[in-house]
Computed example of a mutant assay.
Amino acid sequence: MIVAWVTQRLAKLDKDVVTQAQATLLGGFRDSDLDKVAQAVEYPREVHKADAERVDGRTLPEELLVDGEPLTLRRFSNDDGDTIGSEWIYSDDTTLRRENSQHWPMQSTHYGSDRIRVSHPFDDD
């Protein structure tokens, strides 16, 4: 089993990496990345469109509706306007669901010495 966290633009990722994934967790994307999303998913890619609010309700699977509404993935903010979470879609051979990142623990265990400094190769230090 391999897990890949992709932090680059999806459009720049090799097609083999995208199409051979057995499970995906994808968030919102701009237009140029949506073609690559379409290669990886079996539901309408438009649900991932970051600059839209709705999807064609006739094509969106029931599992991805929000209270019966065909909404694109949402970003959640607090009263100060700070982003506090966003929606993602998890899919594999048997599962299709929206995930809300507000419910994910944002802490992880640190392994290794606190004394080892990791530096960027272009640092002047």
Rank of each mutant, 00 (worst) to 15 (best):
F29K: 05
D16Y: 09
D56R: 14
D56F: 15
N100P: 08
L96V: 00
A23S: 08
D16I: 13
A50W: 13
L10D: 02
A23F: 00
I89T: 00
E62H: 14
S113F: 00
A4P: 00
D56Y: 14
Q102P: 08
D33V: 04
D14G: 05
P70D: 09
L10R: 03
R9P: 12
D93Q: 10
Y90P: 06
S77I: 03
T7F: 13
R54S: 09
Q107C: 11
L71P: 05
D114R: 08
L34A: 04
Y111P: 03
I89K: 07
L34F: 01
D93L: 06
A23Y: 03
R9N: 14
D92V: 13
V3D: 00
L96Y: 01
S119E: 10
Q8P: 04
D67E: 08
T7H: 14
L96Q: 02
I84H: 02
A50R: 10
E62P: 06
R74N: 05
T94H: 05
Q22P: 06
Q22F: 09
R75Q: 00
E42P: 12
I89A: 04
D33H: 03
Q20A: 10
D16F: 10
A11G: 08
E87F: 07
F122T: 10
D33W: 04
G68D: 04
W5P: 08
L60K: 07
D35L: 02
P70T: 11
W104H: 08
L26H: 05
A38H: 02
M1S: 08
P70M: 15
I2W: 10
R45Y: 03
T72E: 14
P105A: 14
H120Q: 03
E62W: 07
F76R: 03
E99F: 12
D80S: 07
G85F: 09
V3E: 01
S108C: 12
A11I: 05
R74S: 03
L10W: 02
V41G: 00
